[in-house]
Design a protein around this nucleic acid. Structure first.
Lengths: 228, 228
DNA sequence: CACATTTGATATGTACTACATAACTACTAT
DNA sequence: ATAGTAGTTATGTAGTACATATCAAATGTG
């Protein structure tokens, strides 16, 4: 009995199901063979046979990789290796209603960190055209109802991300928007920093990078003040 | 014939496979019924019947959600809703060998942005103990071979993330490490800013937040100079 | 000969059945 | 009353069959 319990405590290496194992093995396989995107993969039956599992199990594993965008399948051409869309997969689990409050807060802070750190990229890549567009957005926000103001707020900060010239960053921001909104709506009253959007535009036109960083800090200060 | 083509052009809304649809429907279902983590879900057969698909298809969809950590299953208790580990899922597709170079560069920049933006959180939450630890790490890096220096570099910046008091951020950094390394090793010669780690520690001890931001900027300058 | 159509082969998508396995429940025996 | 056993139940795995879409070759027609 003791031995039985012991072996049970020591050897529960069969932690995962077949599908889990197959998923890992497939990953290793794709990596090891160093397939390039677009390359054709063996057919399901061959893979299932090689791994010695049923086609069902194999398909469960393939289903996961397919969802992650690592493979694509066409009815007859079989499967091909694809470029995973790293952010698309992220998005699937990024739901404010499901994430626990602690992580939610972490992500909120993450966005503050991003916006504070954006300045360097923006000053490397900003163009006059960008600034003009940004100014247009900022000007529109005067004298409008609250729902419009929120949309405009999003447009303004979104444009800043766009000016970073980093698509991944921009998409990342779009994904984080719902969470940012969710946390912000939990706040009692609207936060408004001493530096508004038009001020920031003005700094971008004539000020230095350091000015802009200070301006952004003042703009976001109400959010930072809430942290502890 | 023309009509046939027309209807074919107009009605291909069944773009995705059943498993894709079921995955989405399940997501909606979980959200709509506002299950809390730990709540029991209906059994596979019931779900399959309700959705009018085979148990196979349903399981392919469940397999995905399970991988994302949204649900967990025990042999008899059925399935329960779980908290997805948002970063764990991300990690699965984050392989420098698979990601295209453009995204790789984007992520490299993302990390620079994060490190520049960290200052605010660090100055809100840093403790003397943190700084002492950081100093220990920085002191160790003198007179060592290159491989040790890289490890130490990682330890130092990792400690900075840790000092932000944001677990998600810290884990995020760990995930991005391989990519950062990968990009850095592509560089011709080691980059070294005018401000080194010990300088940064000194600033943390006696300097202001603005000093630290400037210091970090100088420290990372070689990386930024490479951007265009 | 060239082009359009048809037909067949092939790989994935879906369905259904059967059984294995683990875990909870209830009952039975000492 | 407790230990042990048998039964029940839900997930895990295997296997078969057929549907569907697509490519390729064969066939027919001008």
């Amino acid at each position: 009995m003791a031995i039985n319990n012991l072996s049970k405590d020591l050897a529960p290496i069969t932690s995962s199901t077949m599908a889990d194992i197959v998923e890992v093995r497939l990953r290793e396989y794709l990596k090891k063979k160093s397939f390039r995107p677009g390359d054709a993969l063996p057919k399901e039956l061959e893979l299932a046979e090689a791994l010695d599992v049923s086609r069902n199990v194999l398909r469960e594993a393939l289903s996961r990789l397919r969802m992650l965008g690592m493979i694509e399948t066409k009815k007859k051409r079989g499967m091909i290796l694809a470029r995973p869309d790293i952010l698309g997969t992220f998005e699937r689990v990024l739901d404010p209603l499901i994430i626990d409050t602690e992580t939610l807060q972490d992500i909120f802070e993450l966005r503050l960190v991003l916006e504070m750190g954006l300045a360097d990229l923006i000053y490397i890549r900003k163009t006059d055209k960008d600034i003009a567009e940004l100014e247009n957005i900022a000007k529109k926000e005067i004298n409008h109802d609250n729902s419009f103001r929120i949309k405009n707020e999003i447009a303004f900060h979104g444009k800043l991300y766009e000016m970073s010239g980093n698509d991944t960053l921009k998409r990342f921001q779009i994904m984080l928007l719902p969470i940012f909104d969710y946390v912000v709506t939990l706040e009692k009253k609207p936060t408004r920093g001493k530096v508004n959007h038009l001020d920031l535009v003005q700094i971008l036109k004539t000020g230095t990078k350091e000015d802009f960083k200070k301006g952004m800090e003042a703009h976001l200060k109400p959010h930072f003040d809430r942290l502890k």
